[in-house]
Design a protein around this nucleic acid. Structure first.
Lengths: 142, 142
DNA sequence: ATCTACATTATAATAATTCTAAACTGTTGA
DNA sequence: TCAACAGTTTAGAATTATTATAATGTAGAT
């Protein structure tokens, strides 16, 4: 899903009814310069802040999962009580700041291409994710 | 924590009171040939199956977290509603079978050492985890 | 044996997510 | 244009994982 509107057409193209709610969520998620990470909670807040509008929590969950299934959002694996999503669906890795719970993108040059030698019969690799967990240097509070 | 008993002494050595419950959990977790992965739920089941005993859920949570803090268990980052733990605390990576929700160890030779070039000021790297998600090859049901 | 700090427990509370069933709305085709 | 239907949204209930609470129990020191 790319910059600039007519999300109505785009939604139709990928076989989704362009409802008010979906169009609004497209605007919040995809109508920006930079990709970003969010939790469902973040997203609900963004919708109510930026659009001054309330979309039912269930709808936000549904729509995020639909967008994910269609490949316009990626879920990020970090162990946590909540799920993190990324509007950047290209293959890339992350730093996770354990002090602030902040997710930071790696770009390609940060980590070499991962070469997987193992291979499981009958299974294909869907994704390879590297998560680098960092925390404050001085305190040994971990 | 290693094979073979006297977990009472071992617990004492690391500054934990060797309570009935902790000793039992040590036996279930560490008294085996192979390391393994589990969720809290799995562990509760193992305790009741293998030891014919019930340990309060709260205690299982507490004790797992204590063992984790002391470095005898490692939490694994996979996105999920629940937390996964590993009795293998050495640095290693995982395959995750999305069909069966099964976690499979990689050994050292499966994935080259990850070289991180990015570095965040004031933060030190606590861990580097690679998660390779796989799923059934034939069906395109993802 | 007694004391005390740490542990355990059952249960309640919280938080994230999913389910449900009723109301609503794009879209299709008469 | 409009009825009809399938797909959507919604509020709220239900579920699931996890953490907090407060009372009771217990290991280890004196």
């Amino acid at each position: 899903m790319s910059k600039n509107c007519n999300f109505i057409e785009k939604l139709r193209e990928i076989g989704l009814r362009p409802t008010k709610q979906r169009v609004k969520m497209c605007e919040v998620l995809f109508n920006r310069e930079k990709t970003f990470h969010f939790t469902i909670n973040d997203l609900v807040k963004m919708i109510s802040d930026e659009m001054n509008e309330k979309i039912s929590l269930a709808t936000v969950y549904n729509t995020v999962h639909v967008f994910q299934k269609k490949g316009y959002l990626k879920e990020i694996s970090i162990n946590s009580d909540k799920s993190y999503f990324d509007t950047n669906t290209s293959a890339h890795h992350h730093f996770y700041d354990e002090d602030t719970n902040e997710l930071i993108d790696c770009d390609e040059s940060d980590i070499d291409k991962i070469n997987i030698r193992k291979n499981i019969t009958g299974k294909k690799i869907n994704s390879v994710e590297v998560l680098v967990k960092v925390a404050s240097d001085n305190q040994n509070q971990k």
